[in-house]
Amino acid sequence: MSAKIQDIIQKFLNTRKERFKASVPDNLFTQCPNCKKMIYRKKIDKNHGVCPECGYHLKLTNKQWSQLLFDEGSVQLLFEEFKTVDVLEFPKYKEKLDKLYEKNINEGVTTGKARIEEIPVLFGIMNTEFILASMGSVLGERIASLFEKGRSQGLPVIILSRSGGARMQEGAVSLMQMTKTAAAAKRFSNAGGLFISLIANPTTGGVTASFAMLGDIIITEPNALIGFAGPRVIEQTIKQKLPEGFQTSEFLQEKGFVDLICERHHLKDTLRNILKIHQY
C-alpha cells in the first residue's frame, strides 16, 4: 500500500519537475557537464564559458573565442570565398552541407587577421558545429593559405584546433590535406615564422596528426581530450577499459607533448607575452 502511495507522490513530483523545466527557457540555465550543477547562462558567458563552480571549460562559440582572444573591432576575415564541393558524390554529403549553409555556418574553420593588444596576428578558429570541424578541402586550403600569408607578411599564426579529424566524406582528398597543411607549416617555419597551436576539447585524428602538433609552442585548455584515435576506437581495439584521465591535456603534458596548459582567463595575456618575447 505504502509503495503505491510513494509511487503516486513520485509521479506528482515528476510532473511538477517537468512543468518547472518547461517554464524555464532552454538557454537560461546550462548544466555543467563536469559537476552537473545548473548554472545561470549569463554567469557562465561572463566567465568565458568556465564553470564558476568547478572550473570546467565548456565549449565556446567562434564568436566568443574571438571576443576572448582579440582586440575589439580588430577582426578581419580572410579566405572566406572558398566553398566545399562534393567531390566524391558521397551519400548524404550534399544535404548535410546545404543544411549547414542555411544556418550560415560556412566551414569548419574561420581564418583571418586580428590584433592581440595591438600586435597583429593571423588566426584560425575551428568550429565543431560544421561536421565536427573535420578537415576537408576547404579547411586544408584555408589553413595552408594562412601559413602562406603569414610567410609573405611576416606575421605570427595562431590556430585554435578542435576537430574530429579528417573528413570521411572527402576520402583520400581530405587525407592529403594533412600533408598539405603540414608542408605549409614547414615552409612558414623555415621562413622564421612563429606558429602557436592552441588545442581545445576535443581534438583527434588527422588534425592532431598534422598542424595541431606542429606548433612551435603548443598550448592546451585544461582537461581537453586530445589524441590520435578516439577513446572508443581504442577500447574496441584493445578490448579493455581505458584508464582515468587518458588522452587529456594533463596526460599529454606528462608525456611531453604539450608546452603549457593554460586557463582561459590567462590565455590572452599568455599569448601577448609570448608574442612580445618573440619581438612582434
Partner: peptide
C-alpha cells in the same frame, strides 16, 4: 598514444 603517435605522424609529414 602515450608515445605520441599523432606527433610522430605529424613530424614525418
Amino acid at each position: 598514444e602515450e608515445r605520441g603517435i599523432a606527433e610522430a605522424i605529424a613530424k614525418n609529414l
